[in-house]
Design a protein around this nucleic acid. Structure first.
Length: 506
RNA sequence: GGUCCAUUCGUCUAUCGGUUAGGACGCCAGGUUUUCAUCCUGGAAAGAGGGGUUCGACUCCCCUAUGGACUACCA
């Protein structure tokens, strides 16, 4: 088997879509599993759709996710097949266009967009192919001299592939098996346009994959219909022997209804469809990303990996290395996968629980800083350890722990009604005395003493504790009470109880 | 319209001719608990339809239906 070399070849037309992320991931797993290379090539053959910043966004996204590029754009060392931007490879493509032209496997066409539009109106289901090309304005219908003069007078033209009709073209797909197409259904695709001296995707990707010695083309299912064209191109160029193997991945579908997951679905349903936040430089429109939404890259990687692939075991949580070790194209499913955001949250929850408290505390400190709260790492770490199990995201930690940092300003009305009884103030005043007398304010010690007191006085445990919680937290939420007051300290605890007794009237 | 791809619980999926069709998310119930969560236990929940092939089909074949992708001088 030849050296595995795969490429991720996005177009810099905007932020990297989450479906693209999964494609990149599968390419990466496959490459690393087989000790191969992962290349990043930028397919910028359409200047009109170029969006500034998109390329940087793509590189940063892959970086964030932990996908390491071995070669090409964003790689440590550039690589031997540079350049990796298609816009910088004009001369290379021109050479192969000329080869195709000389061999009579492609031809020059002068039809303007308006001409084509007219033809489509004139002929139902018009397709530029063997049955119609002799009706058009091209080097097959014009004399050699006429073609020459037109080119000389700077008339715009395109080069089209001359598809031989009625051939059976077999595409071997690693996921779907053999897929057979009849060449007659393929149109004479534009390979090159004189207007910008650039090829279109079809020619460029074949030429580059060949020159860059790509062994496997792993891409989305939307490319399956054009795969026979690519196979034909390899044949026309004489590269059949080294043609890469193909694998067409199932699509990522929208959670409700059907169809490809799109940017709009994210906006509509309230979840990100991009790895990172993005602001469109032209429209100023912003899109949210997983990173900023509080996701760990490992969780996103894990979640996405299982949308269309499974290990065959009942394992759900996978590290990047496990994914690489266990990945196999023949365990990729054939049908599209609906995007289940709820499960995505669960993955993040799992990763949050398994993370080191101190590491989470560091991230949480940044969020606290934005609120003007500065606390030392040890204390924040302790708080994180107490509340993280009830959160899916670091960003949810504040909602679970704000009372550690800020005393309650008001008390949840429903809880007051339910838990604040006539005897409560007196009991809490007693509690203050009990707590005041304690020197060792550790959770274990305060719990023993307070519970002994409740028992001795024959108070109702629930009554006292719930009122206690209301005084300290202001709401019926939070971890073990004695853990909370151990963090708050004696003084703050007593002050909060006093304040509650003064302020709560029921 | 044409071509191609697909079709197991609501969702992601296991099953590669013989299983009580398994797991996970979500949902529901119960338990733990001073609250809310977490957690634990349990539950409901699936082979699109019709023909074949076979002793036996979720699994193989065909048809139908449904869904999707593609059908640009975009990728």
């Amino acid at each position: 088997m030849r050296k595995v070399r795969v490429r991720f070849a996005p177009s810099p037309t905007g932020p990297l879509h989450i479906g693209g992320v999964r494609t990149a991931l599968y390419n990466y797993f496959f490459a690393k599993k087989h000790g191969g290379d992962m290349l990043l090539r930028i397919e910028d053959t359409d200047a009109a759709r170029f969006v500034p910043g998109a390329e940087e966004y793509i590189v940063e996204s892959l970086n964030w996710l932990g996908i390491k590029i071995d070669e090409g754009v964003g790689a440590q060392s550039v690589g031997t097949f540079a350049p990796y931007h298609q816009s910088e490879r004009k001369a290379i493509y021109r050479k192969y266009i000329d080869q195709l032209l000389a061999a009579g496997l492609a031809y020059i066409a002068f039809d303007t967009p308006a001409d084509l539009e007219a033809k489509r109106l004139e002929i139902a289901n018009f397709q530029y192919d063997a049955t119609t090309r002799n009706l058009m304005t091209n080097s097959l219908t014009l004399s050699v001299d006429e073609v020459k003069t037109r080119i000389k007078s700077a008339e715009q033209y395109v080069v089209r592939i001359k598809i031989e009709p009625n051939l059976e073209i077999k595409v071997q797909d690693l996921i779907r098996g053999e897929v057979i197409f009849n060449s007659s259904v393929i149109d004479d695709k534009v390979l090159f346009k004189s207007s910008d001296e650039l090829p279109t995707y079809h020619l460029a990707n074949v030429v580059d994959d060949y020159l860059m010695e790509i062994s496997h083309v792993i891409r989305g299912e939307e490319w399956l219909p054009s795969a026979p064209l690519h196979v034909l191109l390899y044949r026309y160029l004489g590269w059949t022997e080294v043609m890469p193997e193909f694998a067409h991945l199932p699509l990522l579908l929208k959670p409700d209804g059907n169809g490809k997951l799109s940017k709009r679905d994210g906006d509509r349903l309230g979840f990100p469809v991009f790895p990172l936040n993005w602001k469109d430089p032209k429209t100023g429109e912003t899109s949210s990303g997983y990173r900023e939404a509080g996701y760990f890259p490992e969780a996103v990687v894990n979640f996405l990996s299982l949308l269309g692939w499974n290990s065959g075991t009942e394992q759900e949580i996978f590290s990047m290395q496990e994914l690489i070790d266990q990945f196999s194209l023949d365990r990729v499913s054939k049908s599209g996968a609906k995007f289940d955001y709820e499960k995505g949250k669960w993955f993040n929850h799992k990763y949050l629980q398994s993370k080191d408290n101190k590491e989470i505390a560091t991230i949480f400190q940044c969020l606290l800083g934005e609120k003007g709260i500065v606390e030392d790492t040890a204390k924040v770490t302790k708080i994180v350890s107490l509340v993280k199990e009830r959160a899916n995201f670091v960003t949810e930690l504040w909602g679970q722990s704000s009372f550690f940092f800020v005393a309650p300003k008001e008390y949840d009305a429903k809880t007051v009604q339910k838990r604040w009884k006539t005897e409560t103030p007196a009991q809490l005043m007693e509690l203050i005395d009990v707590l005041f007398a304690i020197d060792d304010f550790s959770a274990e010690n305060t719990e023993n003493i307070v519970k002994d007191w409740i028992e001795k006085k024959e108070y109702n445990l629930g009554d006292v504790m719930n009122a206690f919680r209301l005084s300290i937290v202001g709401e019926p939420i939070g971890p073990h009470m004695f853990d909370i007051i151990a963090v708050l300290g004696k003084l703050e605890t007593i002050e909060r109880i006093q304040r509650a007794v003064i302020n709560i009237n029921n």
